[in-house]
Every structure is written in C-alpha cells, then in structure tokens.
C-alpha cells in the first residue's frame, strides 16, 4: 500500500522513499515508523507524525512511498 492510501491514526513503516534531497534532509526515509495525522482535501498533502514531529508530504510523493501497517 502507498502512503497516501494509509488510514488515519494507524502506524506504518515506510519503504521505497524517493531519493528527494529535501525529503531525506527532513528525515523521511526507509524504515521509519510513522503515524498518519490527517489528509488534506482537494489532493492536498498527507500529514505524518514521526515521533513528535509533524511533516506534510505532497500527494505525488506520498503515492511513491510504500507503507507497511504495524500490527
């Protein structure tokens, strides 16, 4: 499942993060556990939480990231 399709309030492990410099610099990379905070309307970004940080990621990028649900 890609990140943009993830459900709110659930936790996921990220995989196949694109090699985007800003995305990497901001700390979004493979193996991270994230939870979904919210998804914006009209094709807006998805907001994820990594530990106590919140990051908004564009829909186009979020659709490229694989997310595995943490059970």
């Amino acid at each position: 499942m890609h990140l943009y399709a993830c459900k709110k309030k659930q936790c996921y492990i990220l995989n196949n993060c694109p090699k985007d410099v800003l995305l990497n610099a901001i700390g979004v990379r493979d193996g991270l556990q994230v939870s979904i905070v919210t998804k914006q309307p009209m094709g807006g970004p998805i907001v994820i939480r990594i530990k106590k940080r919140e990051i908004a990621i564009d829909k186009s990028l979020a659709c490229m990231i694989t997310a595995l649900a943490v059970t």
Binding site: D20, P45, V47, R53, E54
Partner: peptide, 9 residues
Amino acid sequence: KSRPLILEI
C-alpha cells in the same frame, strides 16, 4: 510544474 510540498510543521 510546481514542486511537491514537503514541509516540516
């Protein structure tokens, strides 16, 4: 095209 949004809140 516009660049994708990546923003640490």
